[in-house]
């Protein structure tokens, strides 16, 4: 059944009804939402959306699976992915040889996911998060080692994960995921400990300087 045309006209109202019904309708809707607000705002650093698997986030390489076919570098529309020649020890041939592996430049990447889709051995995959800040442009060009690590999920350190669920009355409803919080809290503690140890190692020098300043 193809489409068909439906002739319509602007809804008409008599002038008196327009003044009263229109104004009262608008005011009533305004008051309804004033008294019962339907908020969908994400309080971002305090909360973050736990995206589902399949989201096209940052890309990670599994080097063992890579067969150096360079399909990913050829299909990259933004020329973000480049092949890098590295000396590696080939286990099958049992000799050291030069092989090519992909590295990525996040300055250019547009997260289209073609490289992941084209990889014949599934050596690349997406992580389901995308909010990460690099301190300078140089850091965004990843080395082969960095490209194999999953980038740190920074928003998970500060915020609590939420998920948006569709709802008939409210559109999107925010659901806090308390259970998943526990899983994430462990690495957070570890990083905190690391930071505190770093601070302890760093601290003695400025402290002594301060003391000296006070004594003088």
């Amino acid at each position: 059944m193809p489409a068909k045309v439906a002739l319509k006209r602007n809804p008409k109202k008599n002038p008196l009804g327009r003044v009263f019904v229109g104004n009262i309708g608008a005011l009533a809707i305004g008051l309804k939402y004033f008294l019962d607000p339907n908020r969908i705002t994400l309080l971002y650093p305090h909360e973050y959306i736990k995206l589902r698997q399949g989201y096209r986030g940052f890309i990670v390489l599994i080097q063992d699976k890579c067969i150096s076919c360079s399909s990913c570098a050829r299909i990259c529309p933004a020329r973000a992915m480049k092949m890098l020649s590295v000396k590696v020890f080939d286990k099958r041939l049992k000799k050291e040889m030069v092989k090519k592996f992909p590295v990525i430049n996040y300055n250019r990447c547009i997260f289209c996911g073609y490289c992941v889709d084209v990889c014949p051995t599934e050596a690349l995959y997406h992580v389901p998060y995308h909010d990460l800040v690099y301190m300078n442009m140089q850091d965004m060009i990843l080395s082969l080692e960095d490209f194999q690590k999953e980038p740190e999920n920074v928003s998970a350190k500060e915020g609590i994960p939420v998920r948006y669920v569709f709802d008939e009355k409210r559109g999107l409803v925010k659901i806090k995921q308390e259970e998943e919080k526990k899983e994430i809290s462990q690495p957070v503690e570890q990083t905190k400990q690391q930071e505190s140890t770093k601070q302890q190692t760093n601290n003695p020098e400025p402290k002594s300087v301060n003391k000296g300043g006070v004594n003088q």
Binding site: M1, P2, A3, K4, V5, A6, L7, K8, R9, N10
Partner: peptide, 15 residues
């Protein structure tokens, strides 16, 4: 679209 049934709204006023 050829297999789906739907309307295409056409208005006459043009404002």
């Amino acid at each position: 679209y050829g297999e789906l049934e739907f309307e295409i709204p056409v208005f006459e006023e043009g404002d």
